[in-house]
Design a binder for these strands. Structure first.
Lengths: 225, 225
DNA sequence: TTATATATTTAGCCTCGTCTAATTCTCTCC
DNA sequence: GGAGAGAATTAGACGAGGCTAAATATATAA
C-alpha cells in the first residue's frame, strides 16, 4: 500500500509531467509539494525503489507504467468526488477542491464506483476535466481553442476551466461561467483583457488574457454568421 | 489538529470507559488498538499533555471534558457515514464498518452535516445506535431489555444490535434481523440458546444467549395477551 | 577551458507512532 | 509485612517524512 503522501507525489509528477513533457525536476516537485528539496530527493528514491517512477539522479523523474494507473485511480476518485459533492451534497464550486483532495486517498474503489453509478457514470468533473473510467481509461483532455483565441462577437461554449485556483473558481461561478455555459466575446484589448457576456445576462465579465488562455471553449458561431 | 491514530485512541477510550465505568487500563487499550503496551503508554502521555485525557501512571486513563466532544464528533461522522453508505450507496450492512472507520477521520464537519441533511437528520445509525447531533448531544443509548430477557411467546421489536462484529451482522441481516424488525421468541434453553422467528417468516434463527444479551429489544406483546 | 552560479544530493537530526528488552511498580497472598 | 506474579513504564531502536547545513554535480559565461 501507498501512503497518502506518496500518492500526492505521484499525482504531482503526473500533472507536472503533463505540463512540460519532460522529466520532472526535483525542484519543481519541491515547490509544488511545498517541501524542501532534500525531502523530495529522499521520497523519489523510495518511489523509484518501488518502481512507480524512473529516477535519474540530477535529471528528474518520470512515471513508470506501474505508476500511471495508480495516479489515474486517484484522479478518478478526485473527480468523482468533486462531481458528487457539487451535484449531490450542495457543495460550492470553490469548496470541493480541499475536501476531494483529502478524501481521494481514503475512499475505496467500491465507494468510487458507487458514487459513479449514482451519478450515471459521468464523463467529466465539474470543471470539465475527464473522469477516468473504472478500468482507468481516460479520454484525452479537450485541447483546442481557448477563450483567448476568440474574435469579438464570437459565441462559444465553455468546455473546461482550470481547477486549481479557488479564487478564480469562485469568481467564475459568481458570474455564471461554468462548463456548458455559452458566452459571447464582447471585447479584447491590446493590453491583455478579454471581456465576456454570459448568455442570457447583461453582465459583463472581464478576465486577464492569461486566464482566458486557460479556459477551453468551443466556438459556436462567428460574428459574421 | 489530531492525527487519525490519536482519534482512534480517544474513540477506544470512550467505548472502553463506557463498558467498564472505570479508568481504562493501558493493557485493555493495547489489546483494543492491537499494539503493544509501551506504544499505549507513550501515546496516552501525549494525549494527556494535550489535555484530552487524564492519565494517572499505573492507574489508567479517563477522557476529559476536552476529549469527550472530540470523540462525539468522530462518532457522529462514523454513524452518519454508516447510515449514508447503507441507505444511499447500497452498501451491505457488514461492509460499512471498515469504510466508515477510515472515512470518519477525513470527512469535514461540513460533509457530515450535508449527508445528515440529505438523510433527514436521522437519530440512529443502521445498528440502532444514536447519532450525536451537530452540537454533539447524544440521546442516552437505549438500555433496558435484551433478547435474552424475553419469555417464550413474546413478540419484540429489535432496537439495537452491536456493530463491531461483521460476521454477526452478516448473519443477522441474512436472517432478516435488523433494527425495527419484529421477532417472536420461540424457544429458550437451559444451555444458553435463544431461538427466534422473524415476523412474517417461517424461518427459525438461533442465537447464543451471549449474543442475545447484546441485542436490545422492545417488548410488544406477551404470550398471555 | 576554466570559473562561477545554480541545482541536486548527502549528512545528520527531528517528530510521530511503533517495537523489544529491561526495569519498576502494584497487588495479592501467605 | 514481605515475596512473587503480573502489569506498566522506561530505555533505546526503527521507518516514514520532514528539515538545515554542507558537499557535489551540472550548466553557463568569460
Amino acid at each position: 500500500m501507498l501512503s497518502a503522501i506518496m500518492e500526492d507525489y505521484l499525482k504531482a509528477i503526473y500533472y507536472l509531467q503533463d505540463e512540460t513533457d519532460e522529466r520532472v525536476r526535483t525542484s519543481t516537485l519541491a515547490e509544488h509539494m511545498d517541501v524542501e528539496q532534500p525531502s523530495v530527493t529522499s521520497m523519489v528514491k523510495k518511489l523509484a525503489e518501488r518502481d512507480f517512477i524512473h529516477y535519474k539522479p540530477y535529471k528528474g523523474v518520470v512515471l513508470t507504467d506501474t505508476g500511471i494507473p495508480v495516479v489515474l485511480e486517484i484522479i478518478r476518485h478526485h473527480r468523482l468526488l468533486e462531481r458528487y459533492l457539487t451535484e449531490r451534497l450542495e457543495y460550492d464550486w470553490a469548496e470541493v477542491h480541499d475536501e476531494a483532495d483529502r478524501l481521494e486517498h481514503h475512499i475505496s474503489n467500491q465507494f468510487a464506483d458507487r458514487i459513479a453509478a449514482q451519478l450515471g457514470n459521468p464523463a467529466v468533473d465539474p470543471h470539465g476535466d475527464p473522469i477516468p473510467t473504472a478500468d482507468l481509461d481516460v479520454s484525452p483532455p479537450q485541447s483546442g481553442e481557448t477563450l483567448a483565441d476568440q474574435q469579438v462577437g464570437d459565441k462559444v461554449r465553455i468546455e473546461r476551466v482550470p481547477d486549481n485556483d479557488p479564487d478564480l473558481l469562485r469568481y467564475l461561478s459568481e458570474h455564471g461561467i461554468t462548463p456548458k455555459t455559452v458566452v459571447e466575446i464582447v471585447e479584447t484589448t491590446s493590453f491583455g483583457m478579454v471581456t465576456l457576456d454570459p448568455d442570457g445576462t447583461d453582465e459583463r465579465v472581464a478576465l486577464p488574457e492569461e486566464v482566458a488562455r486557460s479556459i477551453i471553449a468551443q466556438t459556436l458561431t462567428g460574428a459574421s454568421n
